[in-house]
């Protein structure tokens, strides 16, 4: 009886319903991607040669993600693990330890053009609480399309190592995708050019857009500063509102992964309306406007241009 129960447990564990990923049983390459944007890149590069599991799903914030047993099990079985790095996935170290995985974790920002973060980090807003994410280098490197090209090349390298037979396919997939990325980059630049130069200022709560700012010239304002006492946030917001007025910021934007209350408050204080939702650290679900990376970037640009030029 005891044996039987153990056996049932064991079967339960290996069932596909629990872990729809990362097993070599069907000959596919088992891939775990830490969050949805990397997941999309992996799908583009791997096509149907890979079995993909994405840990942090659409519209979710990797910074506050709580890993689950199923994630550890998926990691344990994975052939390739894809991560952003730059302290973006704070949960990964302990999850890797718990899983005992031997798969190599590829760091996709390797070789990318990284923004050094002098402030040491940025705020996340969850359930009305500000959580400071300390990172010496800005991890949101995918907001630069040039960096996205590095990401997909790094993915192809990682796949090639684990599956030499598929290497040509992976490289061909990257080749085709690079063309779309180059086109995307040009389209973004063209769209931003339509915004008068002195109006290229937007406001967000969680500043995940420094790469976008660097590459495309839209300045993003967000609450900054060192909070040492509870009142600090009042001063931060007050300072931000002054900055919004000084720089004549055109619009305030919500983010798909963040609580919108703070930006709603900032917008009302500054006498601006919410210009829509930008996708920063996660894609939208399948039916949404940003279900893959290309759509996400196009949606963000369209949202920015429409809100700023339309006001």
């Amino acid at each position: 009886m005891k044996f039987l129960r153990t056996l049932i447990c064991a079967i339960g564990l290996t069932s596909a319903s629990l872990v729809p990923a990362a097993s070599a049983e069907d000959g596919k390459l088992g891939v775990v991607a830490t969050f949805s944007i990397i997941g999309d890149f992996a799908r583009v590069v791997g096509g149907d040669r890979i079995e993909l599991r994405t840990l942090v799903s659409a519209d979710s914030d990797a910074h506050v993600y709580e890993p689950r047993p199923a994630d550890a099990i998926a990691l344990a079985r994975a052939d390739v693990v894809l991560t952003n790095g730059l302290l973006f996935e704070g949960f990964m170290e302990r999850l890797v330890e718990a899983s005992g995985t031997t798969a190599e974790a590829a760091v996709l920002t390797k070789g990318a053009n990284i923004v050094n973060d002098p402030e040491g980090g940025h705020y996340h807003y969850v359930d009305g609480k500000a959580i400071f994410h300390a990172t010496p280098n800005d991890p949101h490197a995918w907001q630069s399309v040039a960096n996205a090209q590095i990401y997909v090349r790094n993915i192809a390298e990682a796949f090639c190592k684990a599956d030499t037979a598929g290497c040509d396919t992976y490289r061909a997939n990257v080749e085709a995708y690079q063309k779309q990325l180059i086109e995307l980059d040009a389209d973004i630049k063209k769209a931003i050019a339509d915004i008068p130069e002195d109006r290229r200022v937007a406001v967000v709560a969680h500043n995940a857009f420094r790469y976008f700012e660097r590459d495309y010239g839209i300045q993003f304002l967000s609450p900054q500063g060192i909070s040492t006492e509870s009142e600090a946030s009042a001063a931060d917001v007050a300072a931000l509102i002054r900055e919004i007025r000084e720089k004549r910021a055109a619009a305030v934007f919500a983010e798909n992964i963040s609580d919108a209350r703070l930006v709603e408050q900032i917008a009302s204080e500054a006498g601006l309306t919410l210009g829509g939702t930008l996708y920063s650290d996660a894609l939208s679900p399948e039916a949404g406007p940003a279900a893959n990376y290309l759509d996400m970037m196009r949606h963000n640009v369209w949202t920015l241009v429409t809100a700023i030029n339309g006001e």
């Binding site: 170290e93 760091v107 010496p136």
Partner: peptide
């Protein structure tokens, strides 16, 4: 200093 095996490009 935690040994974040998954990160690169932090510091020298």
């Amino acid at each position: 200093v935690s040994t974040l095996a998954l990160t690169v490009g932090l510091t020298g």
